[in-house]
């Protein structure tokens, strides 16, 4: 049973298409949902929670239909919204226990799990004080705790590091990683910050303007591109010309030459390396860097043609 499955999921608002025929199948893990602001991440989460009807298409979460079984889904998932959403005048303990009960836990279980969960997110003595006096980092932890209190099978985190300082971000990311790996809860982290997603996710779903760019294990997003990057101290045009003369595809860009490792039948990959070195020596160039080029997550959103090939 896939964790989440969508088929041609579409959400149109007057004048805007928030989701455009999105089809994706996801298995449990820490799933990064990346896209620029307004790419449709929050819309997708709300449809999956059964809070928003799609214009077209279907979605199932934990094998439950998002349109007809919303309450059943919401009993088994946790949701941490992007914005501030905590009442200032109650304590974290009181609030999280209450939300646990609203998730369907009996009173005793809600109290026990509140104590557990607040400890896991790292709130101690301060949990008895009103939330209004908390720092942003502490509030984020309370938001996470209320999403965890009922031991969900799946957690939706919408921009969980929003508003946090670098140390706070690190702690939040470490916490997310623990939840996914140690607690065994599937996590979907929506974020526009690729660098952060990269650190915790095992799988990545990239969307742009409501369309699926790519869904794949994180590693494949950063795999080798089949290109060699050669950086010099001086302009690289001559090197590129000489390589081209040897039948190797090479394009110069300032002090950098991008060399195609799989140029064709005539030159092998090792042959390319040899040729590059030979020409660098022949031209007496100062070599700064020689590396197999990898995809950058950012490439996804730069519209580079080759990244779209899944």
């Amino acid at each position: 049973m896939p964790l989440i499955s969508t088929r041609a999921l579409t959400k149109r608002y007057p004048g805007v298409t928030a989701l455009d025929a999105l089809s994706v199948e996801l298995e449990p893990g820490i799933i990064g949902l990346v896209g620029a602001n307004g790419a449709g991440k929050s819309t997708l989460i709300k449809i999956l929670l059964g809070l928003l009807p799609p214009t077209d298409g279907q979605a199932t979460v934990l094998d439950l239909d998002s349109q007809t079984q919303g309450p059943a889904i919401r009993q088994l998932v946790g949701y941490m919204p992007e914005h501030e959403s905590l009442p200032p005048d109650v304590s974290a303990t009181e609030f999280v226990a209450h939300m646990g009960r609203v998730s369907g836990l009996p009173a005793g279980a809600a109290r026990e799990r509140t104590a557990d969960v607040l400890r896991h997110v790292g709130l101690y003595e301060e949990r008895y004080r009103p939330i209004g006096g908390y720092s942003t980092g502490m509030k984020q932890r309370v938001k996470l705790a209320q999403a965890l209190v009922h031991d969900p099978r799946l957690l939706f985190l919408d921009e969980p590091t929003n508003g946090l300082d670098p140390a706070g971000r690190d702690e939040m990311l470490a916490l997310i990683e623990r939840i996914g790996r140690e607690f065994g809860i599937a996590v979907i982290v929506a974020s526009h910050l690729l660098g952060e997603i990269e650190r915790v996710a095992t799988w990545l779903v990239a969307i742009d303007a409501g369309r699926l760019l790519r869904t794949a294990p994180l590693a494949t997003f950063t795999e080798r591109t089949g290109q060699l990057l050669v950086e010099l101290e001086e302009p690289a045009d001559e090197l590129a010309r000489r390589l081209a003369a040897r039948g190797i595809e090479a394009t110069a860009d300032g002090r950098v030459v991008i060399v195609d490792l799989a140029t064709g039948e005539t030159v092998t990959e090792t042959g390319v390396y040899d040729a590059v070195l030979a020409e660098v020596v022949a031209l007496d160039l100062a070599l700064v860097r020689l590396e197999a080029r990898r995809h950058q997550l950012e490439d996804l959103f730069r519209g580079e043609a080759d990244v779209h090939v899944a």
Partner: peptide, 17 residues
């Protein structure tokens, strides 16, 4: 307070309407 501090999304993400 639920309205002012936007607590309602937390309620609506639970098994109620």
């Amino acid at each position: 307070n639920d309205l002012r501090h936007r607590v309602l999304p937390l309620y609506f993400s639970r098994p109620i309407g």
